[in-house]
Design a protein around this nucleic acid. Sequence first.
DNA 1: CTGAAAGCGCTTACAG
DNA 2: CTGAAAGCGCTTACAG
Lengths: 327, 327
Amino acid sequence: MNQPKIYDIAGAAGVSLATVSRVLNHPEKVKKSTREKVLRIIKEKGYKPNANARGLASRRSTTVAIVVPTVLRASISEMIQGIVDSAKNFGYSIRLFVNDEDEDQVETWREVIASSVDGILFMSDEMDDETYELIENTPVPVIFVNAISKNSNYGSVSIDNEGCAYRITKEMIDRGNKNILFIGTEHNYAINNLKEIGYRKAMEEAGLIPNTIKSSGDISKNEVQFNEYLDNNRPEVVLSARDSIAISFMNVATKRGIKVPDEMQVIGFQNTRYAELSNPKLTCVETPIYEIGNKAMANLTQLMKNEDVEPENTFIDYQVIWRESTK
Amino acid sequence: MNQPKIYDIAGAAGVSLATVSRVLNHPEKVKKSTREKVLRIIKEKGYKPNANARGLASRRSTTVAIVVPTVLRASISEMIQGIVDSAKNFGYSIRLFVNDEDEDQVETWREVIASSVDGILFMSDEMDDETYELIENTPVPVIFVNAISKNSNYGSVSIDNEGCAYRITKEMIDRGNKNILFIGTEHNYAINNLKEIGYRKAMEEAGLIPNTIKSSGDISKNEVQFNEYLDNNRPEVVLSARDSIAISFMNVATKRGIKVPDEMQVIGFQNTRYAELSNPKLTCVETPIYEIGNKAMANLTQLMKNEDVEPENTFIDYQVIWRESTK
DNA sequence: CTGAAAGCGCTTACAG
DNA sequence: CTGAAAGCGCTTACAG
C-alpha cells in the first residue's frame, strides 16, 4: 500500500480535503467532533502531508538549512546536535549543506535558497563579496552560529571571544607568567581572530610581547611545526584557539620531556570531547557550543515568525574548565 | 528582487517554460542554440528551480535522508562527511534526521517518508518490529550504513566486524596473551555484537575464557566502572568496541600506574581522530567510516536509478593501525 | 525540436 | 464551521 494522501483521509472521514488540511494547520477553525474524527483517521492511516506539496502551497517548508564548512570538527557536530534538538522542539526539519571553504560559495548559497527553506543557520565567517551580496538578497532570515557577520544585518550567536581571550590571558599574566604563546588557525576565522585580538590586548596592557603562530587542522603537520617551534622556544603558557590543536601541542611537548603543567601550561578553547580524553586532561575555555546551536535555532524561529523582529547578536555565557594541564 | 521563477527565464529567453524545464532535465532534447541561450539566461539571473515544486511534479527530489541516532559521535560525523561528499558528486542534497534511540522510531520514520526523499541512509540497527514493518513499506530504497539489517531486504555497507574482531583477537593470542578483555557497549548495536561474537570465537578456539564488560558512552561513568574493574582484574590485552572507550580505559589504567603497553595493551575499534590525539597513541582497527558513508551513498544512487538492482551487503576493507598502545 | 495543458499534493482566501 | 476552487512552481506525456 502506498503512502496515504490527503484525499484518502478526506474520503475516509467524509469531509473535504480543505477540512483535513485545516485540522492540521488551523485546528481551532474546525469543530471539535470533526477534528477528532479526522485526527483519529490520520493516526490510523499513519498519514503525513507530503513535504513538497505543503511547502509549495504554503510557501513555508518548516525546514531550515544548516550551512557548515565541514562536519568533521567535534565543535561543529555539537553545534549541529544543539540545532537539531531545538529544531525538533519547534517542529522544524533540517537540510544539511556542507561547503568546503574552497568550493564555490555562490553556487552553494543558490542551492540553499532554491531548497526553499524557511531560514538559514550559517557557520562559516569567511566569504567573498559576491557571496555577501547573495546573502543580502536571501529571502529568508539568516543567523550566524558561532561566527560573526561583517555587517550587522544578521543575527549571530556566539560567546564573547575577544573578552574571553583577554580575560584568560590576563589571568595567566596575573599568575606570574610572561612568556605566553597564542596558537591561531591558518584559516582566517573571524572568531579566532577575535581571540587573538583579546590575547594581544591583554599582553600589550601588561607590557608583554605577544607571540603567535598559526596552525592547520592537520595533526601530523602540526607536530612537525610544533617540534620546530619548541627547538627554539620554551613558552610558559600556551593558549590555543582550538582544543584539538592544544592537545596536539601538549602531546609534542610531553614527548620531548617537557612536564605539563609544571614546566608548561596549556589552555585550549572550546572544550570538545577531546579535552576530556587528553592526558593530562586539558584546561580550556568552554564554548558552550551545543547551547549556541540551540539558541541560534530558537532565535531563528522568532525571525521566521515575525518579519519585524530585529536580528540581534546574542552572547552565550562561557566558563573556564580548569583541569590538569594548568597549575 | 525576488528569486527568479521558470516563467521569468522562459520570458527572457523567448521560449515556453516547458523548454526551460527540458534544458534542465533533458538537455539532449533541446536544439543546441536554444539550449545555450536558455543556459546563458539561467546563469545571468542565477536561476535555480524551486526544490518543492520540482519534487512535487517529478516525484523525485534528488534529496536523500540520513537517519542517525546522534551526531555527537566522531565516527558518525565521519560517516556523514563521506555521504555528503558522495552526494555532492551525484547531485543529491541531504535531509538530516537525528533520532535518539529512546524517541519514537515510528514517528521519525513517518517524517522521513513524508519528507519525500528519494532514498534513505539508515544508521541505527536496533529497532522494534513496528518500525521494521514501516521500513518494509517504505516507498524508496533504504541502505544500512555501518549497520546490519536483521533481514536481507536491504543493502548495507560496513566492514566485516565479526571476522575482524576474530582476527585481531587471534593475533593477540598468537603473540602469547591469554587474559584478554572485550569491552562492548551497553547499547545493543548489532555491529558491536558481531565484534563480540568474533572475539568469543577466537578465545574459545584457543581454549581461553572470554571476558567481557559493557560500557556506556559517558566518560565519567566509565572511569568509575573501569577503576572498579581494575581493582580486581589485570587484563593483558583490552579490546574495545569503540576507540573513545579504549582511550578512557587506557587513561584510567595509566593513572593507576599501569604501564601501557608494557603491562597492558589496549586496542580500539574505529580509529576516529581521538585515537591519534591519545597519549600513548591508540592502536586500533581502522573502520574506514568515511569510505563506508561514501560507498553507501554510491550504492544508494544505483538503487534509486534502477528499481531492479538487487540490494547487497558490501564489506569495505579495513586495516589495523599499530601505534603505541601495543607492543 | 517546441508549446499547450494536465497534474503533482497540498493550502488558503472566498462564499456560504 | 465547511466546501469548491484557484494556485504554489515545476515536469512530462501528448500533439504538432
